[in-house]
Every structure is written in structure tokens, then in C-alpha cells.
Computed example of a mutant assay.
Amino acid sequence: MTIDEDHTRPDGVDDLTVEALGKISEALEAVEVARGALYTFHRLSGTADLTLGEGVDQLREAGHTELADRIERDLVGRNVLNGRWTFQVVEEYDDGYYACFRELERAAREELVQGKRHLYEAEMKEDRRTHGRSGHEPTP
């Protein structure tokens, strides 16, 4: 193989270990996407609350004070989950599940393959690329 040292399997590491670490890495990538969706939820919920506040102000200016007051009292600034705004949901996810997942994925790589990342993908690249062909170089 001609892949770089950072992506070369350490001596004595079997295929199943590399495949297992590849699956764990793939799972972490899914968690990263889920985290992005959670941040999207956070941003959209915040935008909705601010926009709702503007709409309530306009209702009040249009003379619909009672309805504006009701929406403002019951919905503007309301928790999205029991006792939580979205920033609190994001923080709890980041500090709990996400932090644990990242730490254990890293620990598995450190223990089994000297911390090297993406070994499965690097070996797949080496297997699938056309050697000697422009655009198929092993490294930049």
C-alpha cells in the first residue's frame, strides 16, 4: 500500500478490528449529523420565537391587544421541553451523550490502532483508486 503513515494499519491489527473501528467511526459521523440537526432545531426555534414576538407586536399595534397578550403570555419565550429552552437541550446533549461518544471512539482508536483515524476508509481508497491515474493520487 502507498497510503500515508497516518492512515497505515499498525502491525498486528486484524481486518475485523479495522472494520469494527470503521463502524464506530461511521456511527460517530451519524451522531455529528444528528448534532447538526439539533443545532438547526435550536436556531429555528429561536428564530421562530423572535419572529413570533414581532407578530405579536404587530397584532397589538393593529388593535388586537387581548389576542396579542394571550399569545405573548402563553407562547413567546415558552420552554420547548419541560424546563428547557433549546440552548439547554443542546448543552445537555453536548455534555452528555455527544461527549461520551467522542471520548469512547477516540479511546478505542488509541487502544487499538495508535489513535489513527479512518483506517477502513483509507484502505478502501487504496483498493478503489486507479494507481498512476491523475485524480487518483494516494495523498495530496
Results as ranks from 00 to 15, higher is better:
F41L: 15
F41K: 12
F41E: 09
H42T: 03
R43E: 12
S45V: 15
G46R: 13
T47F: 13
T47N: 14
A48R: 13
L50F: 09
T51N: 09
T51E: 13
L52V: 09
G53D: 02
V56N: 01
D57G: 04
L59V: 07
R60C: 02
E61Y: 06
E61N: 09
E61I: 07
A62R: 14
G63V: 11
D69I: 08
D69E: 15
D69G: 14
R70T: 05
R70V: 01
I71N: 01
I71F: 03
E72Y: 00
R73S: 09
D74F: 02
D74H: 05
L75W: 07
G77P: 02
R78I: 03
N79A: 08
V80M: 07
L81T: 00
N82V: 01
G83Y: 13
R84D: 11
W85F: 03
F87N: 12
Q88K: 05
V89S: 05
V90N: 06
E91V: 03
E92A: 02
Y93H: 07
D95F: 00
Y97G: 00
Y98A: 01
Y98N: 01
Y98K: 03
A99F: 08
A99L: 11
A99P: 00
C100Q: 06
F101R: 09
F101A: 12
R102I: 10
E105A: 08
A107E: 15
A108H: 08
R109D: 03
R109S: 05
R109K: 12
E110C: 08
E111L: 07
L112K: 12
Q114G: 06
Q114L: 15
K116S: 10
R117W: 09
R117V: 05
H118Q: 12
H118W: 12
H118C: 10
L119M: 10
Y120T: 02
Y120F: 09
E121W: 04
A122C: 05
A122L: 06
M124Q: 13
M124E: 14
E126P: 00
E126N: 06
D127T: 03
R128L: 04
R128S: 00
